[in-house]
Amino acid sequence: MTAVTVPDTPTPTPERRRTRRPVRGIGLNVIAVVLGLGIWTLLSRSGIQGLSGPVEVAVRGAELIADGTLPADILASLRRVFTGFALGTALAVPVGFLMGWYGTARGLIEPYVQFFRTIPPLAIIPLAILLMGIGETPKVFVIFLAAFLSSVVATFQGVMDVDKTLINAARVLGASDRVIFLKVVVPASTPFIIVGMRIGLGAAWGTLVAAELIAAQEGLGYRMQQAQLYYDLPTIFVGLISIGVLGLAMDRLLLLAERRLTGWQERR
């Protein structure tokens, strides 16, 4: 016997994708984390030289939170990453637009961008110390540079790749250059800018530890440096995990912004 159910007429709401994914996705994610912790425990038990297990690390994490070291380190690191990242992308967006929109600006700026992009931020540190001393400035500067360089390229690519027919469509409707820029180029390149910001954020975190090698008094990178001197593996793990969690959280925030701002895109 066959029961035929007539499906409701489909309503044009694109909500379908959102409801299914989390249930299965999160389930798998949890399994992955548990599995990872298990393997980690096994590895530390089976006696890899000095490798500390999850429990040990958790205990150290609790200690570091209790005596205020971890919150202070996180705050210091976050402040640096955030300042460098914010300054970097805030500058990258207008510069990227300038490069994408004006051939002259591109010709003048692009060689520098491409050149500095090939230099690892780590290699800038000695120069930054000599020129800027050992305060906050060189650390923020190096993070700033990393974030700026990676997001400026994405922004400028985005502006370059704006569909020419969209610009023509606006022009034949009577749009001036200013209107075309604000109403066509900016929205059309928003997806690229956000991708650029995510890359920039990755670069900023990636540069943090290196930046905190510069005679820092606190910060996650500094703490890990210290821990290295005293062969204190649990603290190193606490630092690593903190960086990972913070980076992931910030990336998710950007992803959320991306979903909201660029939901109009046709996804293939």
Partner: peptide, 10 residues
């Protein structure tokens, strides 16, 4: 235009 050229964000 042949390619529609609609603004996809509007």
């Amino acid at each position: 235009f042949q390619q529609y050229a609609l603004f996809p964000w509007l």
